[in-house]
Amino acid sequence: MNMNCTTFRANLDAYIDSELDKKTRRAMEEHATACPECGALLNEAMDVVTRCAELNEGLTVPLECQAAWRRAVREEAEAKDKARARRRSKHRASRNAWVRALSAAAAVLVLVFAVGTQLGPNGLSGLTPALKNRGVDGGYSAPGAAMYEDHATPTYESADYDMMYASNAVTPISGAATSGVLLQSDGAADQTLSTAAKSDSGVVVLRSANRAISTKEFDADQMYIDDLVAEYEAYFESRRVTGNAEDANRLLKATIRVPSDSLDDFLTALDLRGVVTLREESAEDITANYNDVAARLEVLRTQLAPTR
């Protein structure tokens, strides 16, 4: 190989990482011997890398750190058990007719806001160009999308798949939340999640999150989402797959509702798959709408009572 200073420098890191073939390696070493400047550079580079490799020598995890993470995990496990117990308790309570009525009201709200989120600009506007590129227009030309035009648009290389999803979480009245998913074959998926909950102070907050995730394992990741939905007792509000297994541009788009207690865990688990190219979360105070619907429901119930 014709080695000069330029090619020597270009190959320097590959040499350090033992990525060169024998012939090129020998040429590098011969050049380093013949050229004092490149020889010094090689020594310098090797020196830095060697010193980096030695940094962990004698490094031990401090005892307080070892104890802290174990304590944190145990607390997390206890919190999880308590949350599970609370959910069971809520399920029992939901048998009560009055609670059932409230749940219905909350479900309506969740549905409305889930749709709003899904069609809204903060959810899917960033994905629209990619969908158009694939000829997949899901009708997400959201009103107000212009407000979000400066959002980074995910790039969807044909070899990848992208997923976008949004979630809303509120203090649970209905005990259930919703999310949506759009998945693109060898390419992309969109999700929208929502949950509604009422705090002790009476404030009802709706949280939403969007994700764009790209993967090269469309089928496996689609199954992963199915597993997640089952594990977290969530359900698909809507789900659409475009393209087929031979298509390099498959797309899954879905809306999923997740129990509000599990929303954060659901998001954590979801973010571990594929490459997340967009991550957005928001919260909205829907107390007024909730109270309005609850009041109207109460009026309707009162009107209905004499007819029974």
Binding site: W69, A72, V73, E231, T268, A269
Partner: peptide, 26 residues
């Protein structure tokens, strides 16, 4: 620094604990 490293490690442990059931060996 040690303090932030400890916090990050703790946070990572909790995330792993939450998600360990979904690890499929990919």
């Amino acid at each position: 620094n040690r303090e932030d490293a400890q916090d990050c490690m703790q946070e990572a442990m909790i995330r792993i604990f939450r998600a360990i059931g979904t690890f499929k060996g990919q």
